[in-house]
Write a protein that binds this DNA or RNA. Structure first.
Length: 931
DNA sequence: GTACTCACG
DNA sequence: GACGTACGTGAGTACG
């Protein structure tokens, strides 16, 4: 009998089920092999519950579970930014997607998906057909995009809230009848799906307009009748965008489907199929429940755990062996690789000749699959290596030829179904990338620790091993020595190398077993998945790209600086009346305070006089010497740290400078740049700024810099909820001038630079956890005056003080603070007594602000590569609130537009800031011009 | 190896 | 009542 009156169709939004299950549940893994199955388990539970709940007279006669397929749909062809700000699917969810299809079929339910269409379109087409045939439909989903289908026998059911949604429910939500929902959505837009809509019009206004004009088409045809001038203009200006939005939200009710409603008739699950699947998944509880429900005996799930015990326990309890496997022949290597494939994960570590990844040569690879069982595959060890006298270029015995081994390892390292577990993965990924191996997918124990333990301790392997495994790894010094006599790893005796290298892989695997379940318990899985791990390949590519630095420019500046220093030194010695080392603060202090008897003379804790810039500036009014010292120091700093040291960092092969970013270096989530540090290139003084002229674009290219304007103050305004500040940012006002005006009762048009400067210092102070002492020192004013400013500021902006108090209280209660994106920064000293207390408090106040800004730019960087993929552009550097790019001449504007859009929308959809993020852009032949 | 100083956001 | 502080980094130099 064909589908019609009296029939009831259930349509389940399967993809939504999966995401809900994934995010609601801990990251369960299959015990026998560690396969992630948490989302599958949640999905199965939801389907089973749905079946159980829908027995009885109103039971569905027909049913289907509908899924999205692929990420590119016909909507992307209409609008390339459709759903563009969706975060990427978490790595451990990806392998579960096919399993949910399998689960659906195991339930004997129709499993529907179609390339190029969203689940919503299939649901729409089927719902419309069922309605036309005179039957009833229940759509099991809470997605508001499906509400346009409600009515005429079609209802929705929100399985989480246990609530049915009928036409009245839709009217409650959208303020219009279901058939007009698309009109409202087209006007209001949707930041989650990146539907543009009309700026400034939300659901409320949209419903008002639609109810007044009838339909969207009528409204757009009669915009001249809209009474509010601003609203009218918005509608006129954005008419095309609104029409596009409507086409984006309008579901396709008329898809070509190669099946009909009758084929969706409900069939009882076949016990063997269903229980077979559930047993395979090792879902003990569900197997029991389903068996009871079906009235059959529950099958036994045999325990097939690798060593018959829990990997978390093994990680800590299995002893570290005295010897590991030295892989000498390809058969042994093949055996290890087969084991890794069978297990689905493997810990990997590489040994190389250098800490600099751009120069490091691969010397060997170690693998580990079970605690205590690891191997080392030596590839580039030299013969007679340790005795310099006999060192030759000949390779040591017992090694597989390099290319042969790499040909075997590459497929494993690139296999999407085998998780590679590394400590500080970026390093190994870069070394291997230079050999043409793109390691993926990757888990990084260092980043797992960082996500959970930032602020508690470092995240290097030695620290983690001692802390969490109670085992001190073999120090690298024992193999390569230290200082002048240090050797490279290729000269290390292979026997010793096996012990050391395999142990590192063993430790990494054990840490992973410990950390993986903890990640979820600490509620930082999302942080790890969205802010830490995806950054590894992004930074690796930026570092390998490097930035071109003009050696001649630096060299010329060095010469000029040397001359200037020599001249200053002569003057300094003359004024001092003595010969001394100008670079020695100790000697300088004695000259200033003992010999010349200048006033002041504070001592450091080691008993030497302080000679910092602030002290010398104060003394400059007393004597000529301090000023000259300051000049000398500035030039000396520029020469030694920049014009000289930077030249040594130019890579001879690429002719460029390749920094290294540490992802887990700064507690707040900021990156840190080392070897060289390219995040502290001078800019504040004119002379220093010229160093940036040495950072150049190659022939035919341009440097483009984009930086967030006032991002930390904006975030503070959002977090603390300060309406005046939020409004000022929305209106594009000068925030420091506004603060000054509010505090000192000076109208904006009478603002002086001096008053504004004070307000600016206060604004920065607020971000740092202001204190009277600190502000006084910064502004060089008496302390009580500074305290007066602060008091007035808090009087004017009471919300800021409330934020500070709440943050400190949160830190005291929980032992950590959080960013808007859930990043956790531990505050172990927050309850300390004594001088440390103030320090910890200020750090706790600052961390959520600095950390949220760091999260925002991380999100932008992760999305940036896709966003500029079609442009001849490369992302090169990050300087906390700035990104530097290189782009072919002629494409500058396209790059700026694309990058700005990513940066300004980087918080979405996870966090909707109540202040706009603004990005300034510049371009030029060198970094000085681009800024 | 530690202390001091100074470059950046 | 005194203490000692702006938040977060990395690197070069002196000095023991």
């Amino acid at each position: 009998m064909s589908f019609g009156k009296g029939h009831h169709l259930h349509l389940v939004d399967g993809s939504a089920f999966i995401f809900r299950a994934y995010h609601a549940l801990p990251p369960l893994t299959r015990k026998s092999d560690g396969l992630p199955v948490g989302a599958v388990s949640g999905f199965v539970n939801m389907i089973w519950k749905m079946i159980e709940d829908n027995k009885g007279p109103d039971a569905p006669t027909h049913a289907a579970v509908v899924f999205d397929k692929g990420s590119h749909t016909f909507r992307n062809d209409m609008y390339d930014k459709y759903k563009a700000n969706r975060d990427e699917m978490p790595e451990d969810l990806r392998p579960q997607i096919p399993l949910t299809r399998e689960a659906t079929r195991a339930f004997n339910l129709a499993c529907l998906e179609q390339e190029g269409f969203e689940a919503d379109d299939i649901i729409a087409t089927l719902a419309c057909r069922a309605r036309e045939a005179g039957g009833r439909v229940t759509i099991i989903s809470s997605d508001k995009d499906l509400m346009q289908l409600v009515g005429g026998g079609v209802e929705m059911y929100d399985a989480m809230k246990n609530a049915r949604i009928d036409a009245d429910g839709v009217r409650d939500k959208f303020g219009v009848d279901p058939e007009r929902v698309v009109d409202v959505q087209a006007l209001a837009g949707d930041s989650v799906d990146n539907i543009p809509g009309a700026p400034g019009i939300g659901i409320k206004t949209a419903a008002l307009l639609i109810n007044e004009f009838g339909t969207l088409e009528d409204l757009l045809a009669r915009t001249d009748e809209v009474p509010q001038p601003k609203r009218r203009q918005t509608l006129i200006d954005n008419a095309d965008q609104i029409r596009l939005s409507k086409r984006l939200v309008q579901l396709d009710c008329d898809m070509d489907l190669d099946y009909d409603l009758d084929s969706l008739e409900v069939k009882e699950p076949i016990a063997d199929d269903l229980l077979g699947f559930l047993t395979d998944m090792e879902f003990r509880t569900i197997v029991k429940r389903v068996s009871d429900g079906l009235g059959v005996d529950a099958p036994v799930i045999t325990d097939t755990t690798p060593q018959g015990s829990d990997p978390v326990d093994d990680a800590k309890q299995v002893a570290f062996p005295d010897a590991y496997d030295w892989v000498k022949v390809t058969d042994t290597l093949k055996d290890w690789i087969a084991r890794a494939h069978a297990r689905g994960y493997v810990a990997v570590d590489t040994e190389t000749t250098s800490l600099n990844e751009m120069q490091a040569l691969l010397v060997g690879v170690s693998l580990c699959i079970d605690p205590g069982e690891a191997c080392y595959i030596p590839l580039g060890h030299k013969e007679n290596a340790e005795a310099d006298l006999f060192a030759t270029d000949a390779l040591a015995e017992g090694q597989i030829p390099f290319d042969e081994a790499m040909a075997l390892l590459k497929p494993l390292l690139e296999d999407p179904s085998v998780m590679k577990i590394l400590q500080n993965a970026k390093y190994d990924c870069k070394v291997l990338a230079r050999l043409g191996v793109q390691v993926a997918p990757v888990d990084d124990t260092m980043l797992m620790s960082y996500a959970m333990n930032a602020g508690l301790h470092g995240h290097g392997m030695d620290t983690l091993s001692e802390r969490y495994l109670g085992h001190a790894p073999i120090p690298i010094k024992e193999l390569i020595g230290s200082g002048k006599s240090q050797i490279t790893f290729d000269k290390v005796n292979v026997e010793k190398a096996v012990k050391y290298a395999a142990e590192d892989a063993d430790i990494t695997l054990r840490l992973w077993h410990l950390f993986k379940p903890q990640l979820h318990r600490s509620k930082v899985t999302t942080v790890y998945e969205t802010l830490e791990r995806p950054l590894i390949p992004v930074l690796a590519r930026m570092e390998m790209a490097g930035v071109q630095v003009d050696r001649d420019v630096l060299s010329r500046m060095s010469g000029a600086f040397a001359q200037k220093m020599a001249g200053l030194e002569d003057e300094i010695r003359e004024l001092a009346g003595a010969d001394f080392k100008v670079s020695s603060p100790k000697q300088l202090g004695e000259i200033l305070f003992d010999k010349l008897g200048l006033p002041g003379g504070k001592k450091t804790k080691t008993g030497a006089y302080q000679t910092g810039a602030d002290i010398l500036e104060d003394l400059a009014t007393e004597h000529e010497l301090p000023g000259l010292i300051l000049d000398w120091r500035q030039v000396s700093k520029l020469k030694s740290t920049y014009t000289d040291a930077l030249q040594d960092h130019i890579d001879l092969e690429t002719g460029r400078v390749h920094t290294s970013y540490s992802i887990a270096g700064a507690n707040t989530g900021r990156l840190a740049s080392t070897d060289p540090n390219l995040q502290n290139i001078p800019i504040r003084t004119e002379e220093g700024r010229r160093i940036r002229e040495a950072f150049v674009a190659p022939q035919g290219r341009t440097l483009v810099a984009l930086d967030y304007s006032q991002i930390e103050l904006r975030i503070l305004a959002h977090i603390a909820g300060i309406d005046e500040l939020k409004q000022a940012f929305k209106d594009g006002q000068d925030i420091h001038a506004l603060t000054a005006s509010e505090m000192f009762d000076v109208p904006l048009d009478e603002m002086t630079p001096e008053i504004r400067r004070k307000a600016k210092a206060i604004n920065f102070g607020v971000i740092y956890g202001i204190s009277g002492f600190g502000l006084a020192r910064n502004l060089r004013i008496p302390r009580d005056e500074a305290q007066g400013f602060i008091d007035r500021y808090f009087e004017r902006f009471p919300g800021i003080r409330a934020y500070m108090d709440e943050t400190v209280k949160f830190a005291k209660d929980h032992g950590f603070v959080q960013t808007l994106f859930g990043r956790r920064i531990n505050t172990p000293d927050i309850n300390a007594k004594g001088p440390g207390a103030g320090f910890a408090k200020r750090a706790a106040i600052n961390a959520p602000i600095q950390g949220t800004a760091a999260d925002v730019i991380r999100r932008a960087m992760i999305r940036m590569e896709d966003a500029i993929a079609d442009l001849p552009a490369t992302m090169l550097l990050q300087v906390h609130d700035e990104l530097l790019f290189e782009v072919d001449e002629g494409s500058e504007d396209a790059l700026i537009a694309a990058a700005r859009e990513v940066m300004e929308g980087a918080s979405l959809p996870a966090v909707h800031l109540s202040v706009p993020l603004e990005v300034d852009a510049g371009q030029g032949a060198n970094w000085a011009q681009a800024h």
